[in-house]
Design a protein around this nucleic acid. Structure first.
Lengths: 206, 206
DNA sequence: CCCTGCATCTGACCGATGCAAAGATGATTG
DNA sequence: CAATCATCTTTGCATCGGTCAGATGCAGGG
């Protein structure tokens, strides 16, 4: 069954005409995304899922980009939240970085379509949504903050170390998600150990 | 002017009906991609650019995925070629890796749409095209080979080092291309220095 | 030399999508 | 109670990927 059969669910939770179609659409979008993937997500499928006419969503989102931006934003929030949670209680800098990176990769693997919206090119004209960049920056800030605990580094050194960690983490994650590289093919049992072992290569730096 | 005005060019170079519509389509695809970006590339725009009916391309490509796969394949070939060229004459392992990485990033920046096709999710069902994975593996092989020049490492260590370099390079590149990170914002004047400085973080390992 | 087979290309279609414009609807506010 | 205004519906357009029957023209066999 596709996500479209759940129209009644969304109708029960929200009543329309002045109020919360926007929220219903957002919820339905995340639902469809997780169920049917990126290709299943259209403004029309959204309208169907919420039991509304195909033009109704345009009262709440100027175009598809605006919808995607909203979706991506909640994605970035969840990402940052998951990372922050994972890293709490980590003793050393290295442990913190490891947990952050693992949470990052896990989020991507567990939410492939969402991750795709967040970092893919479906959403053109990112510049139209400045808050998006801010929210997206949270995960970067987490890594940066974790690394700043390390003393004896110039600001510049620290910055490039952050970029390196962030790039390594993001690159590994996308390569896995896009199926250009598989944990199995590398002899790493699960995702976590793959991330940790790869990260270990530049661990001497922190 | 869009790429579609060049129909005559492609007609001059190729005559159709038994022969080379396929090559013409491929050439037009790369042309349109570079000119109008990914969104400008449709089977129909291709047909227009080659001065042919919209159903004609289907005689040479079962569906759009097959066309994209062919495009991606030539992209991977060019990438590997560019990397190989850049790395010739490098003395040390580090220099070789640096040049490979810079060539990688440069290719991506200079051919954003093509790079997008190669690593994006426009092309679904990658498994349908086994040769693609092989061609794509060439650039990985270049890094792997360059790193294997380093002695005193177990096969496993070497493997993870390769993965780390490859991930770092790919991650940094995609983050730049997707505009999640800009060289300017990091105080690095140009692309090359950004790549080199970031790569330097894990340079001690080779 | 013809003519028959077959890949190639055309023309006409289908369903889906993003988006625009004009009108109906209904809650809120003066 | 009436008027306003956001919300939603109706209708319509252009584009896209894909399919199918048939025209077209190159090839090899007689």
């Amino acid at each position: 069954m596709t996500a479209e059969t759940t129209a009644i669910d969304f109708q029960k939770k929200f009543k329309y005409h002045h109020g919360n179609l926007r929220e219903a659409l957002l919820a339905a979008a995340l639902d469809i995304l997780a169920t049917d993937g990126i290709d299943g997500l259209s403004l029309r499928s959204l309208a169907r899922a919420t039991g509304v006419t195909q033009a109704a969503p345009y009262s709440h989102f100027r175009d598809k980009d605006e919808l995607l931006a909203a979706v991506a934003e909640t994605g970035f929030q969840r990402l940052a939240l998951g990372m922050a949670e994972a890293a709490t209680g980590a003793k050393t800098v290295q442990e913190k970085i490891e947990k952050l990176a693992c949470a990052y990769a896990r989020f991507a693997v567990d939410n492939k379509p969402l991750f795709g919206i967040m970092f893919g090119r479906e959403l053109a004209d990112i510049k139209r949504f400045p808050t998006l960049a801010m929210t997206a920056g949270k995960s970067y800030a987490l890594i940066s903050a974790a690394l700043s605990g390390k003393t004896g580094m110039s600001a510049e050194e620290s910055r490039f170390l952050t970029v390196a960690v962030w790039s390594l983490c993001h690159g590994l994650t996308t390569l896995i998600v896009e199926e250009k590289m598989s944990p199995a093919q590398l002899g790493a049992a699960d995702l976590d150990t793959l991330v940790k072992r790869t990260l270990a290569v530049l661990a001497p730096q922190f």
